[in-house]
Design a protein around this nucleic acid. Sequence first.
DNA 1: CTGTTAGCGCTTTCAG
DNA 2: CTGAAAGCGCTAACAG
Lengths: 387, 387
Amino acid sequence: MIKCVKCGEVDAIAKSGIVRGKQRYYCGKCDYYFTLSSEQPLTINHKRHPATILDIARELQISKSTVSRALHGHSDINEQTRKAVLETARRMEYQPNLLAYGLAKNKSMTVGIIVPEFINSFFPFIIIGAQEVANPAGYHVLICQSNESYPTEVANTNVLLSSRVDGLLVSLTGETPNIDHFKKFERAGIPVVYFNRVCKDTNVSQVIVDDYDGAFKGVVHLIENGCRRIAHIAGPPNLQISQNRLKGYLDALAQHGIEKDDSLIVSYDLNPQQATLCAKQLFDLPTPPDGLFAVNDPAAIAAMLVAKERGIKIPEELAVVGFSNEPTSALIEPGLTTLAQPMGDIGRTAIKMLFDQIESEDHETIEPETRVLKTTLIVRGSSLKHK
Amino acid sequence: MIKCVKCGEVDAIAKSGIVRGKQRYYCGKCDYYFTLSSEQPLTINHKRHPATILDIARELQISKSTVSRALHGHSDINEQTRKAVLETARRMEYQPNLLAYGLAKNKSMTVGIIVPEFINSFFPFIIIGAQEVANPAGYHVLICQSNESYPTEVANTNVLLSSRVDGLLVSLTGETPNIDHFKKFERAGIPVVYFNRVCKDTNVSQVIVDDYDGAFKGVVHLIENGCRRIAHIAGPPNLQISQNRLKGYLDALAQHGIEKDDSLIVSYDLNPQQATLCAKQLFDLPTPPDGLFAVNDPAAIAAMLVAKERGIKIPEELAVVGFSNEPTSALIEPGLTTLAQPMGDIGRTAIKMLFDQIESEDHETIEPETRVLKTTLIVRGSSLKHK
DNA sequence: CTGTTAGCGCTTTCAG
DNA sequence: CTGAAAGCGCTAACAG
């Protein structure tokens, strides 16, 4: 309710245009034009209730539809009105209620991302890449950790479904047997892009690196450095990365006339302790390996620690190659030779593909696509026998 | 012929009255009541529209309030009705719409957490601790990265305000000059708990470690190992951790009769590259240090790399102590002596304090509290001159 | 024990 | 260019 600043009248007050971004009023009783100075205390009590568009509307004596339009820079809006709304919003510390927005638009402006863990730097780098694209577009990223546990991954999908995410990025756990739990998203019309740890299912969008090629390059590098008995700490068999890296390893051996020795291939479930056990098992072999290709850096590093403990000299007695180029690989001694993955690119590419699907009116029309990025062999001390 | 919808039995089926106009059946084999409507194909089209309580209500010919009550295990509900609702919900793949729930209850079941970065493992471990408490309580954690940038931190606060988080956990950036931007939460009645990187403001709830004590212990350890010229790579002056660790360093020196030398104290803005520069500056001194206490592990490790590059022997010519016990500290060579922080505990404690405030009806009544956790000196090779 | 009704804050036709 | 009104999915009195 507006009160004339001159005579105090409340009934005979009419709006009379907007000047300098402020609503001007006219008092019919004392024939006086005035604007409400911004010094006036606002009527909201933030304690009870954050400012809403209705508060702004009331303050300005306009409708909330107009406020909504002004806030979104709708074209059909008077410039003065727009300014006044924006100014009042600022003064009231108005923050749009994303819950209400999401409910009305059926769009949460949030994308989910499920990663197996974020203690190592690999997934954080990917998440950062994804956020670099998402945030400027006005989207938030809801990060879930499956903790390498299949049930947790399933639970995560339900959380994200409840949060009504507009899209989902996933890297599977080492024990995920199938992707049935992601079919729910498909049914709900929510696009999903898999990255890094994907499943056999080819009918999905995914971003991966050329694991076969990377593994091949890594193992060839070991062979060229004189290794003949090359062991492999492999990943869980359900993951494509494990299968492809194993294949790259095997093909590199075959192509160089080295016979495959099954006792040199041990499987690791991505659990750090198990990597240590795998390494011990390999070093306990009657004829221990002179080279090691591990499915990832943490496993390679765990093996290096075991080797050091046992006095096995790296790289002289054992040359080691990892996968991913975790920052730690450059810090340990000797430095770990590894296959660098473009982590930021993986995140950016994956979320761009996701946005393509989100933005396309009809998600069906987008063909599932597999984007394959390249790895780079980073040579460090752990593999250079002759030097 | 009637078939049990649960176990498929056909013989042990009996009629069991009529509920809401439908013939109800009872399966004696699996002790289950059902009506035939459940056999009918569901009417929802998930593509257009995920199941809502209204869909369940229509299917069961009951009101949506009843569905709501059944779903939340409200006591005043018929057990049979509850079961029917739950079963239908399952069949319809019903997922509660958190946006609608939040709007209605004015509670998003989400707490925000702002961390400066999550490439190092320190903050991830804290986040995991927080999630361990939050998830079982039905809360989600919305993770924001301020990226050590004050403007980004301010932007993050607005995002979280819009998301209507029920509470906030924050660790400040190295350049945050004040906490005015968090006052918005106070005004909105949203509790905030600061952790690790806090501000001078004592009138807030916070979880920190005893930085002074940790630094003191670390520096005394260096002195006891024969260091006399101990340098300090200090953190940004706006942070309490920097001030307190510096103070611990200074007091340890004073208490052992070692005079303070300002040229041995260099300040670092938490930017990795700058740590390297700081180290170089110290090693370029006419009389270089024989000991180094760094405000955190990344700085200590950066300094160790510079030292190695220059052929400075660690620990013989330079003993090093870091802070936090990042996993990498155990992997580099020599191992980095450091002050372990109970990261999981920090996260768990902080979010418990937050929940205490969220759950208390009147947030005002909770007195701001500062919880101080202990650090532990982890001695590794980087500091053991006599061995 | 269950149904009715009125919002929560925002968007979005549809009329002016 | 602006307003009125309906509705997004859910909760919460208030009646029965």
